[in-house]
Amino acid sequence: MYDTILVPTDGSDPANRAVEHAMELADRYEADVHALYCVETHRYGEPALSSTEIVLERLEEKGAAMLAELADRADNVGIDWTSTVCHGLPWEAIHEKADEVDADLIVLGYQGQSHQRSSKIGSVAERVVRHADRPVLTA
């Protein structure tokens, strides 16, 4: 049913649930998983040898470390896992990556770290669902 699954993550609880779902589906369907961490550069501006550059580097390092840990977990259970850190608007990056890897499914948290209301879908998840041309599962 699924050959390629895209799972964007920001380390939030809903994103972690999405990772678990993606791993379960990948194990069940022997699918490849592509994990994505997007540094939201629009929040900070583009770096120009400033404190912004330091913040963006730390966010990249955080994302890379998180993805490396997830890749180790996936490797331990035999899931083919690829990780990418990118810059940009997360919902756009998710769609671009889904197209690039020809994902059969996008699995993402229903809200991310910047969202505070537990009963509402986050703006990234809402935009991904609204603009998707493939199935999207929110967790």
Rank of each mutant, 00 (worst) to 15 (best):
H34E: 01
E96Y: 07
E40I: 07
L36W: 14
A74N: 05
D80F: 02
E53T: 11
E57F: 08
V107R: 07
H95A: 15
V85G: 10
A64W: 01
G78M: 04
A64P: 07
K97W: 05
V33D: 00
I121K: 08
E40Y: 08
S114N: 15
S114F: 12
G112L: 11
M66A: 06
V77L: 00
V39L: 06
L56E: 01
L89A: 12
E30V: 14
W81F: 04
E30M: 12
C38W: 01
N76Q: 13
C38K: 03
G45Y: 05
S119A: 15
A71G: 09
A68W: 04
L49M: 08
C86S: 13
E40W: 08
G78N: 01
S123E: 06
Y110D: 12
V101K: 07
S50W: 04
N76T: 11
H115W: 13
H87C: 05
S114W: 14
E60N: 04
L36P: 11
L67I: 05
R58Y: 14
A31T: 13
E92H: 15
A103V: 05
G78T: 02
S114M: 14
D80E: 09
L105F: 03
A74L: 09
M23I: 03
E96L: 08
R117F: 08
I106R: 08
I54N: 10
P90A: 13
E24T: 07
A48Y: 13
T41W: 06
H87D: 11
V85Q: 09
V101I: 14
I54A: 13
H21Q: 13
H42T: 12
A64E: 07
G112R: 03
Y110V: 11
C86T: 15
A64R: 03
A74P: 00
Q116I: 14
Y44D: 02
M66G: 06
R117P: 10
E60P: 02
I106N: 10
A71N: 03
E60I: 01
A65F: 03
A93C: 10
Q113K: 13
E69A: 09
L49D: 14
G78E: 02
K62E: 12
I79C: 08
Q111G: 09
Q113C: 07
L67P: 01
D80Y: 03
D32I: 01
H95Y: 02
L70Y: 12
S83P: 04
A68R: 11
I121G: 03
T84K: 10
Q111S: 12
C86K: 15
S118M: 12
K120L: 15
A103E: 00
A48D: 15
E96K: 11
D72V: 15
A68S: 11
I94C: 07
K120V: 14
H21D: 06
L67W: 01
E57T: 12
E96S: 10
I79A: 01
R28F: 08
V77G: 02
A31Q: 10
H34G: 02
V101N: 09
L59C: 02
R117A: 13
L108D: 00
S114Q: 15
D99F: 07
D80V: 06
D104N: 09
E30I: 12
L67H: 02
D104T: 02
I106P: 09
H115A: 15
H42I: 10
D102Y: 04
L70Q: 15
H34T: 06
N76E: 13
A35P: 05
V101D: 03
Y37A: 06
S123I: 04
E57V: 11
H34I: 00
D27E: 00
L49S: 10
